[in-house]
Amino acid sequence: MKRDLTPLTFQTSIMCRKIGIARDGFYSSMKEDHKYNDSDFGYLDNLGYDFQPDALDCRADRDLAPTVLSASAWTTMPTSTGL
């Protein structure tokens, strides 16, 4: 098995070893404040537990500016450029 897998795959899959984060990698510089956390919890709470998955759209974002582009503008936009 060891000869068929890459060393990293063998260590993680077979030996159950965790991968450390490289100190100079991209994710090592990620902090809690780098994550998006501007959800509109009022909208999400109004959905309740029995919601349809398509209800989770941009309305769940608190920083949504609904006057910039209305929903009707999205429906009238062409789906193909015809090129």
Score class of each variant (00 low, 15 high):
Lys2Trp: 08
Arg3Thr: 10
Arg3Val: 05
Asp4Pro: 00
Asp4Thr: 07
Thr6Leu: 14
Pro7Asp: 13
Thr9Pro: 02
Phe10Trp: 14
Thr12His: 01
Ile14Phe: 02
Ile14Ala: 05
Met15Pro: 00
Cys16Tyr: 10
Cys16Trp: 07
Lys18Glu: 15
Ile19Asn: 04
Ile19Pro: 01
Gly20His: 09
Ile21Ser: 10
Ala22Lys: 07
Ala22Ser: 11
Arg23Gln: 15
Asp24Tyr: 04
Asp24Gly: 04
Gly25Ala: 15
Phe26Pro: 00
Tyr27Thr: 05
Ser29Val: 10
Met30Gly: 01
Lys31Val: 06
Lys31Tyr: 04
Glu32Trp: 01
Asp33Arg: 05
His34Ser: 05
Lys35His: 03
Lys35Cys: 03
Lys35Val: 03
Tyr36Glu: 12
Asn37Phe: 04
Phe41Met: 13
Gly42Leu: 13
Gly42His: 10
Asp45Ile: 03
Asn46Glu: 13
Leu47Asp: 13
Leu47Thr: 09
Tyr49Pro: 03
Tyr49Met: 07
Tyr49Phe: 09
Asp50Met: 01
Asp50Val: 01
Gln52Asp: 15
Gln52Pro: 02
Ala55Tyr: 11
Ala55Glu: 15
Leu56Asn: 10
Leu56Cys: 14
Leu56Glu: 11
Leu56Ile: 15
Cys58His: 12
Cys58Thr: 09
Arg62Gly: 02
Arg62Glu: 09
Arg62Asp: 08
Arg62Val: 02
Asp63Glu: 11
Leu64Glu: 06
Pro66His: 04
Thr67Cys: 01
Thr67His: 02
Val68Leu: 15
Leu69Asp: 04
Leu69Val: 13
Leu69Pro: 00
Ala71Thr: 11
Ser72Pro: 00
Ser72Ala: 04
Ser72Met: 03
Ala73Glu: 15
Trp74Met: 12
Trp74Ile: 10
Trp74Ala: 11
Trp74Asp: 10
Thr75Arg: 11
Thr76Ala: 14
Pro78Gln: 06
Pro78Ala: 05
Pro78Leu: 04
Thr79Asn: 09
Ser80Trp: 02
Gly82His: 01
Gly82Ile: 00
Gly82Gln: 00
